[in-house]
């Protein structure tokens, strides 16, 4: 495994007690693998990504568990050590390309400073590489545009620049937090294709955080479904999409409008995700679950084998199997 997250727990101390935003998050990403992370707003997808790159918004903090990069713990590193990992070994792409680039510096300068922060490059070499990267991400006339400022690019072009910035120090893992959400639909496909191609060429693994099942189905190898700060199902993308084992995942999939037939009314999951300070005991999804039974309300299911995926649901607790 390239990245391993074990039993990660993130807490936010507030005036009215401690909120647990992430609880018992465990998953791994293999080299070159694309792991999709889906869930509705507030499920903790982005926060998982932020915890991995060590950029949780204070006062949020990692309260338990471990994050390992190639077997070495990175969640408790001092700031200076973590800085060497960010960009160099774990890159990041954020949601809104209009706000992720510093408006006052040329894109060339931002690329050069990123590379020089991690690689022993002279100014001329770094500039040469910067032009190379801009060409790689499909910026036309890269050599001329290297001295342009972010505002001189369109949103899609800026996201390409952001991808170049994330990749330019050749990290092993990219945490992409909703990389296409802020873009036009027509641009989204291009950006996803670009990201996928570059990741394959560089053998870079991607943790792709999104709420767009279409993007996941198209891009990811495996997918993790999050709900109320937990992973409730994780498995190969085909299995999760076609044969969801957790009732929540099944509900999510059912609520995607089918293209091949007309439906009067889309399926929906009744109710809404519980707030962090009011997560019910037992299974957090139990109040909304169509298959709920007594055990769900009292005791909380962990991920367990279910079909070809892992699901946190008592429906899959075979008698005799270890819980």
């Amino acid at each position: 495994m390239l990245l391993e997250v074990k039993d990660l727990r993130v807490e936010f101390p507030t005036r009215r007690g401690v909120l647990t935003a992430l609880n018992g998050i465990s998953f791994g990403i293999a080299p070159g693998e694309v792991l999709g992370v889906v869930g509705e707003s507030g499920a903790g997808k982005s926060m998982t990504g932020a915890a991995i790159i060590g950029l949780l918004e204070p006062p949020g903090r990692i309260a338990g568990g471990e994050i390992l990069l190639e077997g070495r713990r990175i969640d408790n590193l001092p700031l200076a050590e973590m800085r060497k990992i960010r960009g160099k070994r774990i890159g990041a792409i954020f949601q809104d390309p209009l706000t992720t680039l510093n408006p006052l510096y040329t894109i060339g300068r931002q690329l050069v400073e990123t590379m020089q922060a991690h690689l022993p490059l002279s100014d001329a070499e770094a500039k040469q590489r910067a032009i190379g990267w801009l060409e790689q991400v499909g910026i036309p006339a890269a050599a001329q545009r290297i001295d342009a400022y972010p505002h001189q690019f369109s949103g899609g072009m800026r996201q390409r620049v952001v991808i170049a910035l994330a990749l330019c120090a050749e990290p092993q893992l990219i945490v992409a937090d909703e990389p296409t959400t802020a873009l036009d639909v027509s641009i989204q496909a291009q950006i996803i294709a670009l990201l996928k191609r570059l990741a394959r060429e560089q053998r870079t693994a991607i943790m792709l955080v999104t709420h767009d099942m279409g993007v996941i189905a198209e891009t990811a190898d495996r997918v993790a479904v999050m709900y109320a700060g937990r992973i409730i199902e994780i498995g190969p993308v085909r299995q999760v999409v076609k044969h969801a084992q957790h009732p929540y995942t099944a509900g999510l999939m059912a609520s995607i409008p089918p293209l091949d037939r007309k439906v009067d009314r889309l399926a929906q999951i009744d109710g809404s995700m519980p707030r962090l300070n009011a997560i019910p005991p037992g299974c957090p999804f139990s109040p909304r679950c169509p298959h709920v039974f007594e055990r769900c309300r009292v005791s909380r299911p962990e991920l367990m084998p279910a079909g070809e995926t892992l699901a946190a649901c008592w429906l899959h607790d075979k008698p005799g199997a270890p819980a």
Partner: peptide, 12 residues
């Protein structure tokens, strides 16, 4: 965001 991104790029 651009400061957060600068941190994510590993700048000092």
């Amino acid at each position: 965001d651009y400061i957060k991104f600068a941190r994510a790029r590993g700048l000092s």
